[in-house]
């Protein structure tokens, strides 16, 4: 492997990894507070991308029951991105109220919330198809106004090109990571969240309004999911109602690898899997899909708390 190839692989890995990371951030956030996997996260990610699409004033296709409708106004892309993510956040809140809270209030098995979140995912995916059809959608070209499609990290003779949108996604995922970490470690809100994550009942006894905090967590998770969906869609377009579902499974591997519920871990896990996939030799590329899961299997057997996770004391 030449040096150029090596750097190209590293950059490719980081580029793929940043998509995994940005997907996984909202995913792992809910786990960190509630200890449950929200299977509906992939569909909120998809919804966010569709919301932004509608908010930029573009019309839907011919195949859903909303055929050819468009909103009466058009927002600039960045504003649409923020409003769209906000709407996705509200969907997150709605999911918590309708599918998670009733179960939590009864003290039901945590596995049940896995199933009900899955039911929500089925509803959202099929609702999207029912309303706007299965076709692909894309934003107006170059929504960030980046100008050039690639940035060359090599020399003109030995180019190491990286797509500009990927750089944006990379930057945003790092920024979100920093902001989230700061909120959780430096603010009262963050301390309260940590308390809820540690022990919900005790937190409530200490006077923390746990329901409101959990609602807030779902809002943030949905917001991040919707934003991630839009960002990934600027890179790959919205490829249909299953757009985000495709990330769900690999997202699982990512958040476990980094340590379930560990926020920096989600980003590290994303980059590790991205890099591992990028370095699969080309003759074995058919097995690339298995890399994330082989890593997952191995890490579970030797270090179940994940790369960055702490060993949890088994509560008996």
């Amino acid at each position: 492997m030449t040096l150029t190839q090596f750097f190209q692989n590293v950059l490719n890995g980081l580029s793929i990894g940043s998509v995994y990371a940005i997907f996984a951030l909202g995913y792992t956030l809910v786990f960190s507070i509630l200890g449950i996997i929200n299977f509906a996260h992939g569909s909120v990610f998809t919804l966010g991308a569709y919301f932004t699409y509608m908010l930029t004033g573009l019309a839907v296709g011919f195949n859903g029951i909303l055929a050819t409708t468009r909103l009466p106004f058009a927002l600039p892309f960045i504003l649409a991105l923020l409003v769209g993510s906000g709407l996705a956040g509200l969907v997150g809140v709605l999911i918590e109220r309708l599918a998670f809270r009733p179960l939590r209030k009864r003290g039901s098995d945590r596995l049940l919330s896995l199933v009900s979140s899955l039911g929500v995912a089925v509803v959202i995916v099929n609702l999207i198809q029912y309303l706007v059809g299965a076709e692909a959608y894309s934003y107006r070209s170059d929504p960030f106004g980046l100008g050039q499609p690639t940035v060359n990290f090599g020399t003109p003779e030995r180019p190491i090109p990286v797509r500009s949108v990927q750089l944006v996604i990379f930057a945003v995922s790092v920024v979100i990571l920093i902001v989230l970490t700061l909120i959780i470690n430096r603010t009262r809100l963050g301390k309260a969240l940590q308390a809820v994550a540690e022990d919900t009942v005790t937190a409530r006894l200490l006077g923390i309004n746990t329901d409101r905090l959990i609602l807030f967590t779902f809002f943030v998770s949905g917001f991040l999911g919707g934003m991630a969906g839009t960002l990934v869609a600027t890179s790959q377009s919205i490829t249909g109602p299953y757009f985000g579902i495709a990330f769900g499974l690999k997202g699982l591997a990512v958040i476990v690898l980094g340590g379930l519920g560990n926020i920096p871990g989600a980003v590290v896990g994303g980059f590790v899997i991205g890099l591992a996939e990028a370095f699969v030799p080309s003759q074995y590329v058919a097995y690339k899909e298995a890399v994330a899961f082989a890593l997952l299997f191995i890490i579970l057997l030797i270090r179940p708390q994940g790369l960055l996770g702490r060993v949890q004391v088994q509560k008996v």
């Binding site: 490719n12 998509v19 377009s237």
Partner: peptide
């Protein structure tokens, strides 16, 4: 959804023609 690796591998051999068999979403990307 990300084909950077495959694309750079292709560009490295400097081909005159690229042939793609896939479906709409992945092929388009």
């Amino acid at each position: 959804t990300d084909f950077t690796t495959q694309a750079t591998n292709v560009i490295n051999v400097n081909p005159d023609l690229v042939i793609i068999s896939g479906l709409a979403a992945d092929g388009g990307n």
